[in-house]
Design a protein around this nucleic acid. Sequence first.
DNA 1: CGCTGGCTTGAGTAAATTCAACACACGTGG
DNA 2: CCACGTGTGTTGAATTTACTCAAGCCAGCG
Lengths: 207, 207
Amino acid sequence: MSEKTSGSTLIYEGQRIEECCLLLEGYACRNKIASNGGRQIVSFHIPGDILDLQHLLFDRADHNVQTISPAKLAFLPLTALRSLIDANPAIGRALWRDSLVDASIFREWVLNVGRRGAKERIAHMLCEFVARVESAGIASPTAFTLPMTQVEIADATGLTSVHVNRMLRSLSEEGAITRDGGKITITGWEQLKQTADFSPDYLHIAA
Amino acid sequence: MSEKTSGSTLIYEGQRIEECCLLLEGYACRNKIASNGGRQIVSFHIPGDILDLQHLLFDRADHNVQTISPAKLAFLPLTALRSLIDANPAIGRALWRDSLVDASIFREWVLNVGRRGAKERIAHMLCEFVARVESAGIASPTAFTLPMTQVEIADATGLTSVHVNRMLRSLSEEGAITRDGGKITITGWEQLKQTADFSPDYLHIAA
DNA sequence: CGCTGGCTTGAGTAAATTCAACACACGTGG
DNA sequence: CCACGTGTGTTGAATTTACTCAAGCCAGCG
């Protein structure tokens, strides 16, 4: 078990990997950097998530993994995990399914960044995050303050933080969210879902 | 085995799935539709690709699958595929790896659509496609005319077809590509890679 | 106390979209 | 056979969206 401060980089792109990170407490993200300097967050992670399952079958990381809050992590040696899976195929299937859910979320993100306007895009990202937090039993959508900064929201949605700020104000004026000292809470869940074009099917949550 | 015309929809979002599609000849894409009517292509597929591996573990499709050229397909019943994997774990691992490569490509697409300008974005998409075609042994990058239309390029890059047209002209003026009656060939591979910010690591091609 | 990181706001600019038209190839039906 | 519609590509002009640049605020912290 290991404690990390907010903003710690756990895995660098190109790094050779020997163990898998399990997020126990706190929040994290995966991101890639373009050569023009732009950072794109490709996923957020919540307690219980495995952050780099792909390293069971890839030996090098193709993206970075960073905490976005203070966090606690467990590191599982890949060799141990591999023999666990060999001995118990059901675990392998469950983990495979996990990585397929990951992929489904990436597809939705491509849609989100590619074909939705700025406000819808941000709203969708918020909806997805709280839907996952709720499904993990961590909190209810309406009683939860989101852990990410406006810069992180910008990097996740392919926008600038300035524009995110303006859109958040607009969402808050419409009553979908409430802001207090930079902390975002969702106070108009139905409305947020509607402006977001959010439907949770792609999360494949049902048992 | 089954033949399809260009533009056939093989799988609809929400559909219940009993078999897996293997693309034998021709090209296909996976896409999602936003409620504002926008279509986002989330991946292109080449001969040899399995188009919906995720249905081994999901019972409903979360996106559409369509041909973008005349195509030949084989359909594998999921039950048969599952018992094949149970009997032969190495096949399962190979397929799992396949789905992880898929996911890695989705991540790169999120970056592409989120953080690159229009021209780089298109160039990157073209680079990826020919890199995959080459790695599959179908053709060499420079001697291959791309199978997709400008509308499809637009839907894959999150742009409009009008803007794609202008950027293609610009790429062709720079000598990176050559166009002839709507057919695109890559005639400046090194230059295209450079404007694209393309590095093939994320394709995890190495054996 | 002075930094730093995060948030906010305004004004000007750049990028990509929208709207509108037209050209061309193709296939279909009269 | 030709007429017609459709899909694809092309181009220009006006518009919108989001970005850039710049400044300033506030809270937390060394």
